[in-house]
Design a binder for these strands. Structure first.
Length: 312
DNA sequence: AAATGCTCCAACCGCTCATCC
DNA sequence: CGGATGAGCGGTTGGAGCATT
């Protein structure tokens, strides 16, 4: 049994507010305040509205000094940097932007800012890859190091636990939720979306990685035998989905490329990455994070001693 | 001009947290 | 201490208006 509803749904009005309703609510609150009780307020002033609805209307629209639309470049930058550092905690982000409501910022991010930034980074990435294709005379096949060379920044390497001290479930629940959300919103299946990436490192069982993918995702292709290479094909690079994120329990960490920040992000077992919707990258790179660490160790300066993670 | 698709945003819903009794 | 209640938060939805076919 759930909790009792805050109001009688059959008796309250829903939908857009009329100017009369706005005026009634506004004039009452300006004169008397909310009285600390939103639930009782609509009845007190004769509005056929739910208390929660009144509260939302006041906070997001009627309250003084509210700004709507017309976000400045500075505001854009601030929202982006806060989003990257703390995720979708809109109320905290809104607190840093006077006159903006959490709802406004949330809407603005979801409808414009995210697309704007993702589109920009995606274009740059695709162009860089095309340039690389041209120079190599290769049309569809790329190695992990090919792709990583396009993003020559070292990952922050926030690797936490060692092999001997692994948590039983190294994947934080929010990562799985994020993953399933992303998967479900993809119009096509994995195979259609992924590029051609060959697992170059024969020391690693790519089949194991693939098994994890199949376990956590809808995957149309049959799993390769243990010990064989993972080889996912797709015809053109423009097919990279906007948001792909995989968390692979065999790894001690999660890693992806943040297209907004233009860097690799990673997380240890206990760390909360927050929202990762800015991450875009073919899964082979993500799931082979450990491999990449090993391959690139001589070329990058790591913040910590690189370790090959999680494969056994 | 009509049909269809897309974008945007106000508002709703359900959940968690804080407070009160 | 624990249940009831309200406030606050973030995710999601519905629909108006605009763009495209």
């Amino acid at each position: 049994m759930g909790r009792a509803p805050c109001c009688d749904k059959a008796k309250v009005k829903k939908g857009p507010w009329s100017p009369e309703e706005d005026a009634t609510l506004k004039s009452y609150i300006e004169k008397h305040g909310t009285g600390g009780n939103w639930i009782a307020l609509p009845q007190k002033i004769g509005l056929k509205r739910c208390g929660k609805s009144c509260r939302l209307r006041w906070l997001n629209y009627l309250r003084p000094n509210i700004k709507h639309g017309g976000f400045t470049e500075d505001e854009d930058n601030l929202i982006c940097s806060l989003y990257i550092s703390i995720g979708s905690r809109w109320s905290i982000i809104a607190a840093q932007l006077p006159g903006r409501t959490d709802n406004d910022i949330k809407n603005y991010w979801n409808t414009r800012l995210k697309k704007k930034l993702l589109g920009k980074q995606r274009r740059e990435f695709t162009q860089a890859l095309r340039n690389s294709m041209d120079s190599k005379g290769c049309e569809t096949t790329y190695s992990i190091s090919d792709c990583f060379s396009l993003y020559p920044r070292p990952p922050p390497l926030l690797v936490g636990s060692s092999q001997g001290n692994r948590a039983s479930n190294p994947v934080a629940p929010h990562m799985l939720e994020e993953f399933s959300y992303n998967r479900d919103t993809q119009p096509n299946n994995l195979e259609e979306n992924l590029g051609t990436f060959h697992c170059l490192n024969s020391d690693v069982s790519c089949a194991q990685i693939h098994e994890q993918l199949c376990e956590n995702a809808t995957c149309s292709r049959s799993c390769p035998q243990l010990g064989s290479d993972l080889n996912i094909n797709f015809p053109e690079f423009g097919g990279i989905p906007e948001e792909i994120m995989y968390s692979v329990p065999q790894l001690d960490s999660f890693s992806a490329v943040d297209m907004v920040n233009c860097c690799t992000i990673s997380s240890s077992v206990s760390e909360n990455l927050g929202d990762t919707s800015s991450t875009v990258y073919p899964s082979a790179l993500i799931t082979n994070y450990g491999v990449c660490n090993q391959k690139m160790a001589q070329e990058w300066t790591f913040l910590d001693e690189p370790r090959l993670l999680g494969f056994s």
